[in-house]
Nucleic acid binder design. Structure first.
Lengths: 228, 228
DNA sequence: ATTTAGCCCTGATGGTCGTCAGGCGTTGGA
DNA sequence: TCCAACGCCTGACGACCATCAGGGCTAAAT
């Protein structure tokens, strides 16, 4: 038999209260969206309560083992045990018609639509979507008519699949460095594609790195139950 | 022909300088280990430079598109483009001999060894390792003699695989709630294991949630080239 | 009725943090 | 040789932030 201390008064909640769950979800979302935890007052503002109340709330979550706090530090929270539920979050990125030298990619006239992608993919970076034209990167899983998600950046590292402007023409290629020279290599069985070597006279501008691919596989007219 | 503005003076670095790379790596590691980005002075301290210098450094990384900053906010950094390299990081957790009622799990005498696990797994939570005894959870991928990594916590949600003390005896089971009653169910083809229903008189204490499994598959005496 | 948990508040305090302003030395193109 | 990029510094300022102290209300258990 286990001796029970015969406590008086209201017993502690054995689970997360709705308020606590809400708080935890908010912190989680903040970390996912912003990349860092909220401060007590940011949290309080979003919850519509006072700073100290948020502090109290967080204390409970720490006590129950959902959060860890680095005492005294700004934003010193870590989500130790994520609460269940779909935290995914879609953000729109522009679909650009073409990438060419001279005109900025994000120019109004150049945007032909919008694509919703998971915010995890873009990570707050400037991104855009682009339709693939050639078959030079099929081995890298990038096929004609695919939509690729490109993170805008002027720098890339060897091995990265990039969108680049070579003397004004846009291409998708894998970037390498050989003998101190930049080289853009295709990833394709099609032998007509050859590596492009960038000499000192060539004008190379890296537009961005491919961070995602979106493909809509063609379906026949029939619906449901395709032959197995 | 592209008109060159004929700039004078030293041109900007087109890549990450070693210092910048080091700074970026440090920030990345901080985010991974602590769950939130460092402050300017924390960064400065680790780099061995002044706060403002760290600020300058971060500015460059922002300019080059590796970081994003939430201006004016404490720890307002986000790593937009992770730098390559293995950021994995092993932390030791204690291997406990047994889990029983009465004595604390982490008591010195109870620790029979150490296990190195990826810090991503533990996420700064209190964890320990435990050797599996029965075959009641084989369908959940937990076999006899496996080492399981357990995150210590007194609360769990339906569907979680937990380590629990039922009237003083430790078991690994999957937790469910039926008719408002807690139920611990085995995941095994072995019919001798039956669900345990927790009545109001049963003393249930949840020790922790199983977050990982470690198994060393037995090998024969021979080395290399086992029969295929 | 008493006690305690959960939730929320105000006000104050002191340290932390981002940022501004300005300066120094080195280095590498033009 | 001149200029600009880079890396680094000191000092100061104001806003932000975690935390303390103390209190109030309601609900649930003894």
């Amino acid at each position: 038999m286990i001796t029970k201390p015969r406590r008086r008064g209201r017993p502690p909640e054995p689970t997360l209260t709705p308020k606590q769950r809400r708080t935890l979800e908010l912190i989680q979302r903040h970390v996912q969206r912003q990349g860092f935890p909220p401060t007590m007052q940011e949290l309080a503002a979003k919850l519509g309560i006072a700073g100290q109340s948020a502090h109290d709330q967080v204390n409970q979550l720490v006590r129950k083992g959902f959060l860890r706090r680095e005492a005294g530090k700004a934003r010193g929270l870590t989500v130790v045990r994520p609460v269940k539920g779909d935290m995914s979050d879609l953000v729109p990125i522009p679909i650009v018609g073409s990438v060419a030298a001279g005109r900025p990619i994000f120019a109004e006239q150049n945007i032909v639509g919008e694509l919703l992608v998971d915010s995890q993919l873009t990570q707050k970076a400037r991104c855009f979507a682009l339709k693939v034209q050639g078959d030079s990167m099929t081995l890298a899983g990038i096929c004609p008519n695919d939509m690729i998600v490109v993170r805008q950046q002027a720098l890339a590292e060897p091995g990265d699949v990039v969108v680049a402007l070579v003397d004004g023409d846009a291409t998708v290629k894998r970037l390498f460095i050989r003998d101190g020279c930049v080289e853009l290599r295709p990833d394709s069985k099609n032998r007509k594609h050859r590596p492009i070597e960038i000499g000192p006279d060539t004008d190379l501008r890296i537009v961005g790195q491919v961070v995602g691919v979106r493909r809509v596989t063609k379906t026949t007219g029939r619906r449901r139950k395709p032959p197995a």
